[in-house]
Design a protein around this nucleic acid. Structure first.
Lengths: 207, 207
DNA sequence: TTATTATAGTGGTCAGACCAGTTCTCTTTT
DNA sequence: AAAAGAGAACTGGTCTGACCACTATAATAA
């Protein structure tokens, strides 16, 4: 524990410590963390402080604890906490607007990246999938985010998507035609037209 | 603690209890929550359980605690959740390319939002600042992100900026002229030209 | 071998103690 | 009466030790 700056609270330091521990030891979802008592000893802190850190991470959905067994790393893909947070901030209209706005722009960014980075084969495969399969909006843009080939954007989009879904807002209807139109613009490599196709799909007036 | 239902852990019940308490009493950001000891008494639970709940909410950025003063509801907007998750999720994939790419696109998004949402007064004030002051690239785009009036983007950008700076990459030289050019395009309300001005500033070839 | 039973380990919770800050009050000083 | 100061009272921060309930494993008995 010692190295970390003293000002911040112990439990935050423990959170950081756990992060580096997970990183250093290459722990993956499903793996077991040291027991509370062992962490308490190793980090030379009280068990209650360890628990504060673990409980916080648990509420975030980053870990899972099973009585009698131990604490395990969880397969976190945004979840849990999104729901929790939404129950706390649902009132904030501005926040809602921000989420929608951000999600839309991020999706646009992903589209542009996909357009730039994907080859025709990838896009044609995408197109044939969209042509035949029945899919949700999330599934469609997940594929876009994957084509964008940018982990950061993928992560950000995933979180935003979960947020957005937890808001339970009225969603605009989207026809398959509009999705196909977007894909076609991806293929035609026309930036401006791609943007237009997305705006049309989302029924956006500007930006 | 009205035995909120079976098995779930006490601290989770306390979190729920706090939510309804905030809701029922109409508590707003800045308002003070009961002290840990009082909550402990009122809910008939141990103080440590109360703390586990409060620490979790604190890590989520929903409340703020000040030693000697108390626990307060926080002005949740943006969210430190992005911050937290990023340090946990993005830690290993520091693909420099992704970070630069993402940062650039986010900045572009913020520019477009700023162009749409800001009035001439704001932009002119921005312009006169840029005209006279000596500023860094970060300072410039911080102002842009603020003009974009989207806390989420502000949060994301801040994190990306910090990541980017920590990479210590070679930064392209930017002249004041290029910054002024961007501001002028903001004022002229031309989307396409604004994008072009930014690309030029960052010496980007495409996207 | 298999079934049973201790036993050690793990999380869940509580109570009490002490520290370190802040706030409020009441006395002392000016 | 007003300002300054001292101290009590309160608040969060942390640690310790004690149980409880549950699980997994080792030792034992069938």
């Amino acid at each position: 524990m010692s190295q970390h700056q003293k000002d911040s609270k112990i439990y935050v330091e423990i959170v950081k410590e756990l992060r580096t521990m997970i990183d250093r030891d290459g722990l993956k979802p499903g793996d077991k963390l040291p027991s509370e008592r062992e962490l308490s000893e190793r980090l030379i802190v009280g068990r209650s402080s360890v628990r504060e850190a673990l409980r916080a991470l648990e509420l975030l959905g980053l870990i899972e604890t099973r009585r009698g067994e131990g604490t395990f790393i969880r397969d976190f893909q945004g979840n849990q906490l999104v729901q929790l947070l939404s129950t706390f901030i649902l009132q904030d209209e501005k926040a809602k607007k921000d989420i929608v706005e951000t999600k839309n722009l991020i999706e646009m960014d992903c589209l542009l990246l996909a357009q730039n980075k994907s080859n025709d084969d990838q896009l044609l495969s995408f197109k044939s999938w969209a042509d035949t399969a029945v899919f949700t909006d999330d599934e469609f843009f997940l594929k876009v985010a994957l084509l964008a080939d940018n982990h950061l954007f993928l992560r950000i989009w995933t979180i935003l998507k979960d947020y957005y879904n937890s808001l339970k807002m009225d969603k605009v209807e989207t026809t398959k035609l509009e999705y196909m139109n977007v894909i076609n613009k991806l293929l035609s490599r026309q930036r401006v037209e791609l943007r237009e196709a997305y705006r049309s799909l989302r029924k956006m007036s500007n930006v």
